[in-house]
């Protein structure tokens, strides 16, 4: 095992972010903990609505309030709890220390400014560069993210770029101040696989070059397998399994993770004679306003036992940092 002993740069501890509405309280993030390590990719995977984006929004201080609110936990960045900082202090960190990219590049690119304008602004603001130097730095950054003819593109507006190029421009902007942490929320979901391959390759090289810690949110287990060093599997607001990537894929413990892995069509499986039906996870994710009393997966779990329905299992370390939240595995450990 290549247990990295490096210290974590971002430590999320028992984070709780809830949404309050007339329907009741949606515990979108309900006691989530994980660490980001420099030069490593932490993948977060799970079904739509399980709380992946809200976790990221909580770190960035972007949870819409109301209706949302971080109601518990700590987020340590350089030994400071981000949740205790003022808006101004947070804004400073957001630019230089922690950057975020989204599925839709236009959420961070401004349509009325050229991309050169927007990227050099980052350099002027955070690195105090002059106008000329900042533009040169912007061109350099566009070159690094492999935008063709960056001298020309730097003067173009976002709408003049293709989807893949916009995504790269957004990454260039996010990386322009050497952030220690990059949070990428479904950065390639809207792109073709060929362009996705370019973007993933780019993120990989940036990580190696700058030792950036990357939090990569995706619902694609293929992307996880390819990119992540460590994986967090979320279900209905909670972490249900966490492990090093190879460990998670080879010694999958949680029935939900197993279901996810068995439910994806893998290129070549049918040709190679594995023409069975895909495994279906029956039913659907429960409403956050109406969660089962016990294990949140219990209404869909093929291994459900009586105790599962009324008792929520804890997330328990099974050794070597492999954590799982399931009575099948934790029964013996607590009795």
């Amino acid at each position: 095992m290549d247990q990295k002993t490096q210290a974590s740069i971002l430590s999320i501890q028992n984070l709780k972010t809830h949404f309050f509405s007339r329907k009741g309280v949606a515990r979108a993030v309900d006691g989530v903990s994980f660490d980001l390590i420099p030069g490593q990719v932490l993948g977060i995977v799970g079904e739509s609505g399980c709380g992946k984006s809200v976790t990221a929004q909580s770190v960035m201080g972007l949870v819409p309030n109301p209706p949302g609110k971080v109601v518990g936990g700590k987020i340590f960045f350089h030994h400071r709890d981000l949740l205790t900082l003022t808006v101004q202090e947070l804004r400073k960190i957001r630019g230089a220390g922690i950057a975020m990219i989204f599925q839709e590049p236009m959420t961070s690119l401004n349509p009325v400014y050229t991309i050169g304008n927007q990227i050099s602004e980052m350099f002027r603001l955070h690195k105090k560069l002059g106008k000329k130097q900042a533009l040169a730095a912007a061109i350099d950054m566009l070159e690094r993210v492999q935008i063709p003819s960056p001298h020309k593109r730097v003067h173009e507006y976002p709408h003049q770029l293709s989807g893949g190029m916009r995504q790269r421009a957004m990454i260039a902007m996010a990386m322009s101040c050497n952030p220690e942490i990059l949070i990428a929320d479904e950065p390639t979901t809207a792109l073709d696989v060929t362009v996705q391959a370019q973007i993933l390759d780019l993120m990989h090289r940036l990580k190696e070059e700058f030792s950036t810690a990357i939090q990569l949110i995706t619902h694609d287990l293929g992307v996880i397998a390819e990119m992540a060093d460590q994986v967090v599997v979320m279900y209905a607001g909670q972490v249900v399994e966490q492990a090093r990537t190879v460990e998670l894929f080879q010694h999958t413990l949680h029935p939900y993770t197993r279901g996810l892995l068995a439910s994806i069509p893998v290129l070549g499986h049918r040709t190679l004679g594995k023409d069975e039906d895909l495994v279906e996870i029956k039913g659907m994710i429960p409403s956050l306003y109406d969660l089962p009393a016990g294990c949140r997966f219990s209404n869909r779990c093929p291994k459900v036992m009586d105790m599962c329905k009324n008792h929520l299992p804890d997330l328990i370390d099974m050794g070597g940092g492999h954590q799982v939240r399931c009575w099948l595995h934790t029964r013996e450990m607590i009795s």
Binding site: V193, T194, Q196, A197, L200, D220, L221, G222, V223, I224, A225, E226, M227, A228, T245, V246, F249, Q250, L261, I264, V266, L267
Partner: peptide
Amino acid sequence: TLMSAIPVPDPARR
């Protein structure tokens, strides 16, 4: 190219 661009859900086959 299209085939090779599809990420394979198996970290042992990177």
